[in-house]
Design a protein around this nucleic acid. Structure first.
Lengths: 339, 339
DNA sequence: GGGATGAAGTGAACCGTTTCACTTCATCGT
DNA sequence: ACGATGAAGTGAAACGGTTCACTTCATCCC
């Protein structure tokens, strides 16, 4: 392993000079700098990151804390983050939930963090965040000069969705809620209920927890009611998926029997049968924005710019009553309807 | 930031003793050890990883080198790796392709590597791998005492698939190939052609590159032939997806017009319309096996155990001729057929 | 001519651990 | 009673960089 000492020797200068030359700091003559760089090149020198970080107390690394890899949810966000990182001189440390999460955070093994892991508490975030350690949170509403929450504009998409349902003449609606402690769920629900209220509609709420199975269960519950709703809004796509599965099992077709709308636009949504109407935001953009703001604060002291990521309603088959069938599949002559 | 010096002072011992006590090395009295651990606890001490790694020349970290995050392909592998890592005292560094890939590898910023990134050349892998730096490769056939290729048993699944097609009486078959330099593609193709040859079938090959669009293009090319094949085997699901899209556009239904089989069992496969017959392996298991072997070699000198991950054919709608429609969707009265 | 100036370069301390080589001291066997 | 032994503990040198404080020396200005 070649060290900076080897480089210095080869270039015939002191270690200090070599370091200055390599980092373009200090004041070093052009000829000398060149000699050092050449020596480094010839010896294939790469500075030892541990030594460097130890001394500098800066790692030039952004940490992303997620709870797990699966769920294509993260995938796109990570992709967005990565794409921005590639254009900077920062590196990326993706840290799934683990024993060492705390240590990495505590020891500033990263210069800034993007948190998307509910296992990390609000208190921890609050305690850690500072000018020298800014944090972007993607999953909670926590804010100060050094904590930037990047939230979805839930209301916008939900309003569009409600209008879409309402304009088709649907009046009996139900809401399948996600985890109670989730801000996103709260906002989606509030908006939906508020819109309904303005139209003088009563909307029963069925409690789920964002999992497919909870959507399935909610559906089973709803099937027991005297009169089926005409439209059901699920607080996320996974639950909508479960709901649709329950409907299929019972021989009910969306949107004919019940119009279904989800939230998130997971990749599967467009491929379901029927394709799922949902509300989407660009997760890629989400990740990219997060890391851009972080690095801007770190490098240029640009203050955080709170913003909501815009969402938009995507009308697909599951909630669109009299559209042409987009593929030749399904339709009203569906044998399942008579089962 | 509290250091080991603070801990030593508080426990009334030397730094050396503190270090030994914390690491359970050296010989330290029980009472002393306890005092040190208590002091560490009280001060909320976490050793600085940079200093430790610098000195130890060991990082207790496994690096996973992937080219990008998207493509649900990685997702499950990472999940498998992560699940094993959680049970060990190793950490995980996921490194998407970037400027620093080389440095991380060169400087042993990780103790072992799982390589799934074609940007890293065979030469690099060969040069790096050693007893103290074992490497598992997931995407190439490269092997020595310290390089373990974890490959799919391509032949097994492909044979099953061929038999499935053949047993349904299909004889005119075609093969859509993936990237030429990919071992997986080569094996899938060889096996398929070999099976065909045993049955005295001629199978034309259409060159693709594993992308959806190349599958689409291959389909367009095939549509120009005098007589359509009855079955098409695509070397991966993405191409199969493209192929199906082209068929839909042309008003052709699988399997009625052409039976389609893919390879990989991407999550979407089961959700396509028609659902895609394909060949799958547990990617979760793939990742888990990789990291298990790596850590076993690192910690216990257990030699690498070359093995092939078993694959199995999954018969779904796209290639199953006279099955009951699994859902009520589609079927032979499909208006698209007449367009 | 001589002090001020600033560019170019250097020595050594330091970052926070680990670990080698060493000391001390109680215990044991003979 | 005494050397051998080994457990318990310590001082200081690494690890490989960065950077503060300093020297040297040519140039400039009055």
């Amino acid at each position: 392993m070649t060290t900076i000492r080897d480089v210095a020797k080869r270039a015939g200068v002191s270690v200090t000079t070599a370091s200055y030359a390599l980092n373009d700091t200090g004041s070093i003559g052009e000829a000398t700098r060149k000699r050092v760089l050449e020596a480094a090149e010839e010896l294939n020198f790469h500075p030892n990151a541990f030594a460097r970080n130890l001394k500098r107390r800066k790692t030039q690394t952004i940490g992303v804390f997620i709870s797990r890899f699966s769920g294509s949810f993260y995938e796109e966000i990570l992709e967005g983050i990565h794409s921005v990182i590639l254009e900077t001189d920062y590196e990326l440390l993706v840290c799934p939930e683990s024993r060492s999460t705390r240590r990495i955070l505590l020891h500033r093994q990263v210069d800034g963090a993007i948190v998307f892991d509910r296992k990390i508490t609000n208190e921890q975030v609050l305690k850690l965040a500072s000018r020298r350690f800014p944090i972007v949170v993607l999953d909670r509403d926590l804010q100060n000069d050094f904590i930037l929450p990047l939230l979805l504009d839930n209301a916008q998409g939900v309003r569009e969705a409600f209008r879409h349902l309402y304009d088709q003449g649907l009046r009996r609606m139900a809401f399948v809620a996600g985890a109670l402690d989730a801000l996103d769920n709260a906002e989606r629900m509030e908006t939906f209920l508020a819109e309904a209220k303005r139209k003088r509609l009563q909307v029963p709420v069925y409690q789920g927890n964002f999992t497919e199975v909870s959507g399935y269960d909610a559906a089973r519950l709803i099937f027991q009611s005297a009169q089926l709703p005409q439209a059901v809004f699920c607080a996320n796509d996974q639950m909508a998926f479960g709901f649709l599965r329950a409907m299929t099992e019972r021989g009910l077709r969306a949107p004919a029997a019940i119009a279904i709308v989800g939230f998130d636009d997971i990749p599967l949504a467009r491929h379901m049968q029927p394709s799922l109407s949902t509300i989407g935001a660009s997760r890629f953009e989400w990740g990219a924005t997060a890391v851009r703001q972080l690095i801007d604060l770190l490098d240029n002291e640009t203050p955080f710019q709170p913003l909501r990521l815009s969402t938009r309603f995507l009308a697909r088959q599951s909630s669109t009553l009299n559209a042409e069938p987009q593929t030749a599949l399904g339709g009203t002559h569906d044998p399942a309807l008579s089962s």
